[in-house]
Design a protein around this nucleic acid. Structure first.
Lengths: 188, 188
DNA sequence: GCAGTGATGTCAGTTGATGACATCACCGTA
DNA sequence: TACGGTGATGTCATCAACTGACATCACTGC
């Protein structure tokens, strides 16, 4: 596994995030990112499929962990309890670094192309979650609906978490959103 | 308003859809589309912001009509009734040409970039719907939730409509999805 | 040492997208 | 009729994202 300086992928990720923050996504050339990371543009595209993916390739790990949490949940868990377990796994993975999440979120919200990529990643996560629920024996339609609900809960919770001054944990925000969901559905 | 042959935008739209169907989105060059429409590539980009947008610019009209339906709904309508009215307006606009919808859907599902664009268009519609609900006096949180529910219902209904052999109207599919939603939420 | 392997560099090329400017068809008006 | 204004289009040049082909370098195991 020979190379010049190890960790090119991490350096590219960090350089990209910082440059996107400093001057904006459109104003950042792939050449700039590569230069700051000490590699060439060609190498950037060997690590990331495109200029956007550098912000999103961590999603694979997230999906992996949330699906693992699904498998480990007790056999008696209901569909929504399974979803909650998956979301807790997500919170454990990214919840410890609000600063990073905030930077990433700021960059993504500032650019339409990045928002597109964010949406499709979330949609992929939702589909994977629904599949995981089916593997746990949840019925087809119920799995789809529960996964969509989980996606909505996560969206709301994440937004509250990054908007909060820092006195709210991501996991707490998820719990709160779930509670609000129960209130709303009970009220109708 | 002088020009060579009128309706360049429509010709480009039709040429693009057909070429995307015939040989795929990636294998279709903007030059090919422009040539088939009898214009130059530069003109394509004057009509459409990018190569994907040619399939999505009708969304603006859709949003307009659904918001108009919101305004016209009776003052006594509940949040979900307002959402249903908006979705019915959508069905009235695109529901008459299942063939076109199917072609468009086939092309979009075959390409990741197009799926991304589809998702952000739907997200924009959802946000606009939530805003419309707020203008109708619906509370903030309730408006967001109702709009998201409407979005989910539409997704499911549309898929059923294009999957059906043709013996199901889009409007009927939407009604069915709403009914199922009520069943599910009542069951819990 | 020395061959093998994998990550990187180099280079050329394609395609999407945009700015600047010229040109053409039409429209109203003197 | 002639003429100037307006808007859509063409032409040209250019940038930047991305890709394929091939060379090269550093490390590994023998």
């Amino acid at each position: 596994m020979g190379r010049w300086e190890p960790g090119a992928g991490s350096r590219l990720r960090e350089a990209a995030l910082n440059l996107y923050l400093e001057r904006g996504f459109d104003q950042t050339m792939v050449n700039d990112i590569a230069e700051r990371a000490g590699v060439t543009a060609r190498t950037f595209f060997r690590h990331f499929a495109d200029k956007r993916e550098v912000l999103f390739d961590a999603a694979a790990e997230l999906e992996e962990k949330s699906l693992a949490a699904l498998e480990e949940a007790p056999a008696t868990a209901s569909a929504l309890e399974l979803v909650a377990a998956a979301l807790d796994a997500v919170a454990d993975t990214i919840g410890h670094d609000r600063e990073l999440a905030l930077m990433r979120h700021t960059v993504i919200m500032a650019n339409a192309d990045l928002r597109e990529r964010e949406l499709i990643k979330l949609a992929q996560m939702t589909a994977a979650l629904a599949d995981g629920l089916r593997r746990r024996g949840i019925g087809d339609a119920e799995a789809d609906l529960a996964a969509e609900i989980g996606s909505a809960v996560y969206r709301v919770a994440f937004r509250r978490w990054v908007d909060a001054a820092g006195d709210l944990e991501l996991r707490e925000a998820i719990d709160q959103s779930f509670a609000q969901l129960r209130t709303l559905t009970a009220a109708d």
